[in-house]
Lab assay of single mutants.
Amino acid sequence: MQFKLIINGKTLKGEITLEAVDAAEAEKKFKQYANDNGIDGEWTYDDATKTFTVTE
């Protein structure tokens, strides 16, 4: 399945997509990506659109 991450950071904004088996795997990958890029914020997930959002 394809999942999307919307980044609303203080210095980094944008979207990325990835393939994952389920939402838990996608969340783990997205949070690792955010951590690697210094993004720390409030996370939400919309199951209907398979979209994660992180807002700093």
Results as ranks from 00 to 15, higher is better:
20 A>E: 13
39 I>N: 02
4 K>G: 07
39 I>K: 01
55 T>N: 10
53 T>N: 04
26 A>Y: 00
9 G>A: 14
42 E>A: 12
36 D>I: 11
24 A>R: 09
23 A>H: 15
19 E>R: 03
34 A>K: 01
48 A>T: 14
52 F>Q: 00
37 N>H: 08
30 F>I: 03
12 L>I: 12
14 G>P: 04
15 E>F: 13
14 G>D: 05
18 L>M: 09
3 F>C: 02
48 A>P: 15
25 E>C: 03
4 K>Q: 08
40 D>W: 13
13 K>E: 07
42 E>G: 11
44 T>G: 15
53 T>G: 06
51 T>P: 00
27 E>D: 14
32 Q>P: 01
41 G>Q: 01
54 V>Q: 01
47 D>Y: 09
37 N>F: 06
2 Q>K: 10
32 Q>G: 12
4 K>C: 03
56 E>Q: 12
11 T>M: 08
20 A>W: 03
21 V>Y: 14
2 Q>C: 05
40 D>C: 08
33 Y>W: 14
42 E>P: 04
15 E>I: 07
41 G>K: 01
24 A>I: 06
18 L>V: 15
20 A>I: 04
43 W>A: 01
15 E>T: 10
55 T>L: 13
46 D>R: 03
12 L>T: 08
21 V>S: 14
54 V>C: 03
24 A>T: 15
31 K>T: 07
17 T>C: 03
28 K>M: 13
9 G>K: 05
22 D>Y: 12
41 G>D: 01
42 E>S: 04
53 T>D: 03
14 G>E: 05
11 T>K: 05
21 V>G: 08
6 I>A: 05
35 N>R: 07
36 D>Q: 14
27 E>W: 10
15 E>L: 13
11 T>E: 04
30 F>P: 00
25 E>V: 12
1 M>T: 10
16 I>L: 13
34 A>Y: 02
2 Q>I: 04
47 D>T: 06
45 Y>W: 10
45 Y>F: 08
12 L>M: 12
29 K>M: 06
15 E>A: 13
41 G>V: 02
41 G>I: 02
1 M>I: 13
30 F>L: 10
4 K>P: 00
18 L>G: 05
49 T>C: 04
52 F>N: 00
16 I>N: 03
43 W>D: 00
44 T>P: 00
45 Y>A: 01
36 D>H: 14
34 A>Q: 02
23 A>I: 12
15 E>M: 13
20 A>K: 02
39 I>V: 07
3 F>K: 00
55 T>F: 10
10 K>G: 09
7 I>N: 01
3 F>H: 03
47 D>G: 06
24 A>D: 08
32 Q>D: 11
26 A>P: 00
38 G>V: 13
53 T>E: 13
33 Y>L: 06
17 T>H: 13
52 F>R: 00
31 K>L: 10
30 F>H: 01
8 N>Q: 07
36 D>K: 11
23 A>L: 06
5 L>R: 00
15 E>Y: 10
26 A>Q: 00
